[in-house]
């Protein structure tokens, strides 16, 4: 992780399921509540492993985050009719597989704005359909599919655990803080980062 004076210029390395890495701005990444909870205050040495998602999906998700960096703070779901041309293009150019991957990744990363727009888009897809038509559209899963889904969710939980472990490991490296309570740990890290930024501005 680099640490320039302006936080928007901070870049983080993201690792995808293929093992590829690419960088994302801190401002974009901060739209992910998952990231905020795990890395924001303690930083990360080396790439952040979001290895349950492929590079194309993660790049698509962070493309959205980079674009919405300068938008006003998220204040609840926005009607599809109110979406900007850029937003509409963003959604329209995805095929269904990519759309589903993006929802899953956005949900894991807890990016409220993107997840909410995706959900509103699906709800819109179901409008004007009676029960029989809905059954056709939402293609109810078979028992096998349900089992497979459970396995995927278990895998995701394991991935999340791995990310959390990585975050904890990084925290340990940063300072010997094991015995500090969480609040104090966050405060200490904040103080440390503030000192760091101050020293940069003094230079």
């Amino acid at each position: 992780m680099t640490s320039p004076a302006s936080s928007s210029e901070v870049k983080y390395l993201i690792e995808s399921s293929e093992g590829n890495t690419f960088d994302v701005s801190g401002a974009a990444l901060r739209q992910s509540n998952t990231f905020n909870a795990m890395f924001l205050n303690i930083g990360a040495d080396g790439p952040i492993p979001f290895t349950d998602y492929n590079e194309a999906t993660l790049k698509k998700v962070f493309e959205y985050c980079e674009h919405s960096v300068n938008e006003e703070n998220y204040s609840g779901p926005k009607h599809q009719d109110d979406l900007s041309k850029w937003d509409l293009n963003f959604f329209n150019e995805m095929d269904q597989k990519m759309f589903i991957d993006v929802i899953n990744a956005s949900n894991f990363l807890d990016i409220e704005r993107l997840t909410s727009y995706c959900c509103e888009r699906i709800a819109r897809m179901l409008r004007g359909k009676n029960t029989q038509e809905m059954i056709k559209v939402i293609t109810l899963p078979t028992a096998e599919e349900l089992e497979a889904k459970q396995k995927v969710e278990e895998k995701k939980a394991a991935a999340a655990k791995k990310v959390a472990e990585k975050a904890a490991e990084t925290a340990e490296k940063t300072e010997t803080l094991e015995e500090l309570p969480v609040q104090q740990l966050v405060q200490t890290t904040r103080n440390k980062l503030t000192r760091k930024y101050l020293s940069f501005s003094n230079e």
Binding site: F99, I100, N104, T115, C119, L126, R127, I138, T139, P141
Partner: peptide, 26 residues
């Protein structure tokens, strides 16, 4: 996007969020 959409392959919290975007009649 294709007409069929595998809603139930999404995580349950996402399905719930989709439902929260629907009016009670739907």
């Amino acid at each position: 996007m294709e007409l069929a959409f595998p809603l139930f392959r999404l995580p349950e919290n996402v399905i719930v969020q989709v439902l929260q975007n629907m009016n009670p009649d739907r």
